[in-house]
Design a protein around this nucleic acid. Sequence first.
DNA 1: TAATAATATTGACACGATGTCATATATAAA
DNA 2: TTTATATATGACATCGTGTCAATATTATTA
Lengths: 201, 201
Amino acid sequence: MTIEDKRHLRSILTRQKLLEAAKEVFLQEGFQKATISQMIKKANIGYGTAYVHFEGKEDLLIVLMEDVMERFYEIAEISFLPKSKQEAEEIIYKQAHAFLTMAEAERAMMQVFEQAIGVSSFISDKWKAIREKFIQRISKDISFAQQNGLARAELNHKIVGRGWFFTNEMYLWEIVRNEHHASVEDVAKTITSVYTTGLYL
Amino acid sequence: MTIEDKRHLRSILTRQKLLEAAKEVFLQEGFQKATISQMIKKANIGYGTAYVHFEGKEDLLIVLMEDVMERFYEIAEISFLPKSKQEAEEIIYKQAHAFLTMAEAERAMMQVFEQAIGVSSFISDKWKAIREKFIQRISKDISFAQQNGLARAELNHKIVGRGWFFTNEMYLWEIVRNEHHASVEDVAKTITSVYTTGLYL
DNA sequence: TAATAATATTGACACGATGTCATATATAAA
DNA sequence: TTTATATATGACATCGTGTCAATATTATTA
């Protein structure tokens, strides 16, 4: 349709140049130190142009994070219908492992993201949505296991689910910061073992 | 000694006035929106004076947080020598409860602190020190329990300890943000139950 | 006591980042 | 070609920071 629209194409190109420049600057400087000036300079566009395409730094980062966030949602949506304690442990291990592996795979952008969470309530809300998605899923799974007599029914599934995700999340950030001293496998294996032994019958 | 030194007394008074004003501003505006200008205005002192007494916003907050941090260290130092699984659960519950109760008791300042952790690496390091103190203590306790045949020896005590603290810490921040929907007692009871069942024999 | 030294306070200033807006430029439509 | 519309631009106003030479206050010395 508007393939022939040079103006629109130019606009898209400008936007693209800015996004690429912004990514470079974010990775190099971190979220806080990154400035619009650095980005527009690197993209060879005018200062005001940045504000035509985005509302500011936060907006730019959110667009850059979108595919990473999408992958988190995919992990969160992994279905979970175990028939035994052992089967549960296997599935839970895989999910924890996949989750923590994301931290390693996307470390650079996640580092920027972590900084941004502390500064921008907009970005903080984005992460909160991911967190709630996971917790909702986990809690539902626990509930399912309880109904099937696999898990201790006396425990509040929401509280347990949050707690389990919290352990995973904090390990995620440690890995992102490169502050972990154990391998992703060992971490996933150990926390999963304590969790499933503590919850399942 | 220097009780007669009017200059020094005046200096201490100025510092005190600034600290009090800073606290008010921090609580009202949060860490990011709080400005030196607001503080010196409230304290009725000159702008440059603030920089004579403190290096900036971060420095001011750290001084204001010192007694709260001290109390965290006290909780972390609670000794832990259980003789049975049940005894362990009781002690661990108490510690978790005390930890989460701190969040409620110091909610206002902790909210400011949380924001500051995201922005200032200096303050972030302060919290990291508290975290490591807790984790070190917990890991040691696990190790002790393992040596006495109370806990599963095949688990890496450091990984388990970190994971356990992480659950507590995240619940702490939820409580600080007033985003929790379960009582401190229920949270402490539930996460302790899963943890001790998962770890102890 | 007066002069001098030491300490504490001050606000103007330079700097750097943000977001806006009137203007300029490039493209499309008439 | 002329007019209309979409994009791009950078100068500008605003705000917060941290510094520093100047000023005010208190102590010491002669």
